[in-house]
Design a protein around this nucleic acid. Structure first.
Lengths: 221, 221
DNA sequence: TGTACATCAGTGAACGCGCGTTCACTGATGTAC
DNA sequence: TGTACATCAGTGAACGCGCGTTCACTGATGTAC
């Protein structure tokens, strides 16, 4: 690389022919547009405009509109993974508590990064064409899977549920609550409790059903 | 009404100036387009074309593109409600079994009517502008809510969970599994079991956690 | 039963728009010698 | 250190397209008398 004095150019005040950081700028522009108008309303041309660049420039970095969307989603999964990993914190202070934190982190991400979340789960990027997307998604899922594994092992072997199944259940539950009740702009339906509390209660009941009845520091916040 | 001899005109062979059934035909065309290209790819003009009608004609029936989409979603919720109601079957043969059937019906609908499902949950129709949509959605949700109520009452009063919470949990779980794993065309991620089994297991564990440990005919299919 | 009329539900041509994409190009950068 | 050159990352004009929407219109239907 080497675009010398450009770099942190603060966007609007471009000085030279080369942008220096277009790829990233396009991803950021896309994020803003998705946040504002949904993944359907996002446009290649407008992303270019927002990045202060001619409509042909993005083609140097992305094959087409879909590729940019996939790039956004991919980056989203990477951040998601990091975020979940931090929340799980290697199962500290105890696996039960940490598992609850994982769920909260899931919702927190969907709330604070609705544009990423949209791109990841709702944009309908065909992931056959973008294997790196699927891989990034799998890596994020692996965090939940591993956490389930650890939690499962706190039970006597005979009664341990399959960790993969647990992980799928929790993921689906979190995703369901996130997309129905915790969407960025307008919560679609009124709730008698916060999405976080709703999820926490569900996970608690679910773990209870597995025989994991609240070891460690317990689940009450 | 009175468009006399038109009616079941079998689409392509229109005979007269008046279509006779345009509104419904547009909804059906929209469904087909959504199924084929997702809610984003659906187009007012193309729906008109598919219905064999000039691009201006739809404006006699829908204020704009969004209104048609909302109409589709609304009809979807109505069918969804009827479908869930049939599955619940007033709690027969026993509330526990019927509850499981309700979950299966949820997934079955998402699978067999992906276009409706898309319009209902993913099209991003702003439901502030379409109160009848929210109402239709609420009526569908009420089925799950009432079922939860009945099931909850099989427990002694002191240990009864709030039916609304139960319903939200089950709805979110079903929606999560449906949108992650049971989408129409391509299941997005590989699973070690069917979405139906995954959901059934989750509901079983969840109910177990509530102390509803498999009364009646049990949950094994 | 017939006729005049209001209303309804279509037509078809036209518009302005913004999109995605391509093209030949050019300014800036990095590198080999 | 200087120069020639290849490569990279932009430009800007142009294209064809299909969309949503509007307009004045007209054919068909239903109804009052």
């Amino acid at each position: 690389m080497g675009w010398s004095r450009h770099g942190k150019d603060s966007g609007k005040g471009r000085r030279s022919y080369h942008h220096g950081n277009l790829r990233e700028a396009l991803v950021e522009a896309a994020l803003g547009l998705i946040a504002a108008k949904g993944p359907a309303g996002f446009t290649f041309a407008e992303a270019a405009r927002e990045a202060g660049v001619s409509p042909a420039a993005p083609y140097r970095h992305f094959r087409d509109r879909d590729a940019l969307l996939a790039g956004v989603a991919c980056q989203g999964f990477e951040r998601f993974e990091a975020f979940l990993k931090t929340a799980w914190n290697d199962g500290r202070p105890d696996s039960f508590t940490a598992f609850g934190n994982l769920g909260k982190a899931y919702l927190a991400f969907a709330r604070t990064e609705p544009a990423y979340y949209s791109a990841m789960f709702e944009a309908g990027v065909p992931l056959e064409n973008h294997p790196e997307l699927r891989e990034a998604g799998d890596r994020a899922f692996a965090i939940v899977r591993d956490a389930s594994e650890v939690l499962s092992r706190t039970l006597p072997p005979a009664t341990r549920p399959p960790a993969l199944m647990m992980a799928l259940h929790v993921w689906a539950l979190s995703h369901g609550i996130a997309s129905l009740f915790a969407r960025g702009d307008a919560a679609r339906r009124k709730l008698p409790m916060t999405p976080e509390d709703l999820l926490e209660a569900a996970v608690l009941i679910y773990l209870q059903g597995l025989g994991l009845g609240g070891g460690g520091a317990g689940g009450r916040a």
